[in-house]
Simulated scan of single mutants.
Amino acid sequence: MLFVTFASDEHDAEEDAADLGGPRREFFRLLVKAIFQDSGAFEGTPNGCTPRLNILHLQNGLYRTIGRMMSTIIIQGGEQPAFLSPSVVDYIVSGDILQVHVTPDNIGDPDLRENLKKVQQATLQDDLEKAVSCCDSWRYQVEGLPLVVTMANRYVLVKNAVLYHTVVQRQSCLDQLIDGLSHYGVLSLLRENPSLRVLFHIPGEDKGLAADFVAGILKPSYSVLGSNRRAREELMVVKCREFLQCVENKELRDTYGDRTLTKDEEAFLKTLSPGHILAFATGSSKVPAIGFHPTPKLIFINDEDRHLPTAHTCANELHLFVNATTMADDDGFNHCFLVALMNGSLFSTI
């Protein structure tokens, strides 16, 4: 099990946090971003990420290392690295090129992708010939493609060309990635249970977590029913859920009325999503593959002197302070929540 301590660039010191789960989840979330956005080992396509063919990466075993990282993230409670193209996952699950389903949208190169789409969508012979001529710079170098393309065999050209550019050409990268995924037995588990592929491939429409979903994850830890505090705590839950809904609907700015916000606050508002709130409370912007342990909770603290929500990510707790300021019928609670999220540093950055 990894135990993580973050270092502060500003103060040249370690953050004051023992790793009981929260810092590890935060580290894994940052690691997923580094793998798919910053490493240069993948390229984006309309259907998700596919390995970028890089000889130096192959020689250094980078794709194998990334596979081990992904296995570790899944087994040790990080959010699933679900950014791969479905065609890549097809090959990982089956290990057989002939079992891979491909479309032009699996190709990263926009010119190549659009040219193959034109071949696929051509309705007239003249249109088909023009589209095929755009592929002449490479198609004669790929053995097995039709030399004479007709309306009857154009789909064979498209399918096999996509298969070549997305899988055959990058097979060594994919095989290294698969070797890395055998770490912790993740590969065998995946092949025995193909439904687990959802841990890897990007959803068809990734709109992020919905406000209601996040609200359902954070279970309120109420005082006993009938106590003086219970009604105030229930009101705080209503305020919290309204905040989440405004974030999802991009209506949070409207709740501040005439309040003057800083430039940083205005900029942060534009990027804020319900996933930020979950990350603030747990260190993970998505539900980990193995779920949250312990169950995330909303904790209520009666304190008139503190207003900004805080989090205990190791315990998966979001702490809300119940007092005159946060319960007032104005924008006080929403502004406190916004400031807290902004000051959450990396734990509020997605």
Rank of each mutant, 00 (worst) to 15 (best):
W138G: 01
S273G: 02
H11A: 12
G40K: 00
V32Y: 01
V198N: 06
T325C: 08
H183Q: 14
R170C: 09
P110T: 10
T271I: 13
V162I: 07
V339K: 09
L30A: 11
D179K: 12
K159H: 12
D12A: 13
T325A: 08
H57V: 00
A152H: 10
G95E: 06
L244K: 07
I202S: 11
L157S: 04
G67A: 04
G78C: 09
A41C: 14
C49R: 10
D127N: 14
G48R: 07
G61H: 08
A210W: 02
G344Y: 04
F292L: 07
A18L: 13
D38C: 00
A281T: 02
V224G: 00
R64A: 09
E79A: 14
Y184M: 11
N249P: 00
L62N: 11
Y63H: 14
V238L: 13
V119W: 04
S221D: 15
G44D: 12
E234K: 12
G283L: 08
M236Y: 05
V142A: 01
F27Y: 15
D9K: 11
G21Q: 06
P104I: 03
S182I: 03
N160Q: 13
Q141L: 10
L252T: 06
M69Y: 13
D12L: 13
T349R: 15
K219I: 15
D330S: 14
V339Y: 00
V168L: 04
E317A: 13
T295Q: 15
C336A: 14
H165A: 09
Y256P: 06
N153H: 04
G204T: 08
D331P: 01
L128I: 09
G332I: 03
G44W: 06
C134S: 13
L177A: 00
T72L: 11
T271Y: 00
R197F: 00
Q125C: 00
L30R: 15
L30S: 10
P110I: 06
V119E: 01
F36D: 02
N193W: 04
S223A: 14
Y184E: 13
T326W: 02
I35D: 05
K263D: 14
G226S: 06
L189M: 13
T262E: 09
D303I: 01
L341V: 03
F337N: 07
D212Q: 11
G291P: 09
R306M: 10
S273Y: 02
M236V: 02
N323C: 08
L209W: 00
P294F: 03
L338V: 02
A34Q: 12
C134Y: 08
L112F: 06
S221W: 03
A324D: 10
L278A: 08
V198K: 12
E114T: 12
I178P: 02
Y184K: 11
K207G: 15
Y256V: 09
P81I: 02
I202L: 13
F321D: 02
F321Y: 15
C336T: 08
N60S: 10
A289N: 04
V4A: 10
C336G: 10
E233W: 06
L189P: 01
S195L: 09
D330H: 07
Q176H: 09
V148I: 12
S94V: 05
G332L: 01
N249A: 15
M70A: 10
L187R: 05
E251M: 12
T262C: 00
S221Y: 02
H165Y: 14
A267H: 08
H165V: 03
G48L: 01
V287W: 02
D254F: 09
